[in-house]
Simulated assay, not measured.
Amino acid sequence: MSLALIDVTVLLAGSTIADVAILPRSRPPLARLFAGKPVSSLRSVLLRLFSLCSAAHEVAFLSAFDAARNETAPPEVRKARIDAVIAERLTELLRGFFVGRLTLGGSSAAAVRALMRATTVLGGGIAERREAVLQIREALTALGGAGGAQQTWPGSVLAAHLSGLDGDALLLPAVEQSFLTAADDLDVVLRLLADGPAFSDAPDLDGQIPETGVWARQAWHAPASPLVAGPADRLKARSAEVALLCTRLETDETAADVGVVASYWLGPGRGAAAVECARGRLYHVVEIDGDRIARFEFLAPTEWNFHARGPIVRSLRGSALGPGRQGRDAVRALVDCFDPCVGVSLGFREVGHA
């Protein structure tokens, strides 16, 4: 297995998914690599190591370092960090929605290119962000987004893509869902501090593996989330969040910033931070000796969602696949909705009949 690959094997009993086997990725030994290094030297290292969600990792690291020194960042610094995380979240959500998903041609492909160009300036000042958001809204409208991205125009590229994910290709069972929230932060960071990689490689909270990411954030605002969340439902939730983030960056209204970045002092020289990035809640824990790192631990959203007993397994186990390739394509679409930060190898294997 590649160091940057998760292996997912769907075990079939006829047309029913009997189980899902996930072999998680091997994570880089950052605790050993970072130990003894000056804090000032690690910012550039983080940007190289984490090409996806690099702003979130940088903000998490700096916020954890501030907490370890029992310091609070000035309001303007804190706001700049939150702005960077939100701009990156919008960029990643759009990339995950449009790049490689839709069958594009002509004006549709041009709209996606314009959309992705606009995301490159989201990290600028307020005027630049507002202009970028305007361009994003125009591109979404060209692709069929009505009123931003929450609804679609009939017959549009977006409408056709979403309607193609509905139907009988994949019939999911109703399952009890659990979601990672900011209320779990202290439990998570204390486990990271106590158990290190033994916890971060396969995390759990009292035996439960909650989901994190777009669908979890929707559940914060709508506690009565449906017990069945197929690919179309999850992509509609992504569309709704895109519209909300556009409004946040356009108006600079900070009321929605609660929980985006949180930091925790864990005792002398120890600090932690949680950042709500595109794929879910990211955690960093640091222990410092002066201006050097004595210990570093991190936990990415992918470790929850692609846990061997986690949300993907719960969602797919017991599902019924439609005939032919459609069912398997629908499984792929559902796995893609969890948007891992590394590559995924998806395979199918017959294990007998139910």
Rank of each mutant, 00 (worst) to 15 (best):
S44Y: 08
T72Y: 13
V112F: 06
V99P: 03
L30R: 15
L102P: 00
A111N: 10
E71G: 10
D66K: 01
F65G: 00
L52A: 07
L90K: 14
L42Q: 02
H57E: 10
A31V: 08
L49A: 14
L47V: 06
V59H: 01
P74E: 08
R78F: 13
L47T: 01
F65S: 02
R25K: 10
A87C: 12
S44C: 12
S44P: 07
F65D: 00
G100Q: 07
P38N: 04
V59F: 14
E76D: 15
S44R: 14
T120P: 02
L23F: 08
A84K: 03
S44L: 11
L23M: 03
V85C: 03
S107C: 00
L30T: 14
R113G: 02
R69E: 12
P75W: 09
I82W: 05
I86F: 02
P74N: 02
E58Y: 11
R32F: 15
V77K: 11
S51M: 07
K37F: 01
R113A: 14
S26K: 14
A109F: 01
G96H: 01
E71L: 14
R89G: 12
G106H: 06
M116P: 08
E88M: 04
P29W: 11
L102F: 07
E58V: 15
P38R: 03
A110Q: 13
V77Q: 09
L122F: 05
A60Y: 04
A55T: 02
R81Y: 02
V39Y: 10
L23E: 11
V39M: 02
T91Y: 00
R89P: 11
F50V: 01
A60T: 06
L102M: 03
A118K: 02
P29G: 12
R101I: 01
R113E: 11
S63N: 02
L90G: 11
L30V: 08
A114L: 03
R101P: 00
R25V: 10
R117Q: 13
S41P: 04
L62S: 14
L47F: 12
G106D: 13
L33Y: 13
G36T: 04
R69I: 05
F65R: 08
P74L: 10
K79D: 13
L42M: 05
M116E: 00
A31H: 15
L47R: 14
F97P: 08
P74G: 09
S41I: 06
R117S: 14
N70D: 13
A35F: 10
D66F: 15
S41N: 07
R101Q: 12
F61V: 07
A110E: 14
T103W: 14
S41L: 08
A31S: 15
E76S: 15
A68S: 08
R81G: 04
A84W: 05
R101H: 11
I82R: 11
I82A: 12
R27Q: 13
T91W: 03
L93T: 09
K79H: 12
R113F: 05
R27N: 05
S44A: 13
R81E: 01
A35E: 11
P74A: 11
L47Q: 05
S108C: 05
A67I: 05
A111F: 00
S26I: 15
A87I: 04
E71W: 10
L94Q: 09
L47I: 07
R43Y: 04
V59G: 07
S108H: 08
F61Y: 09
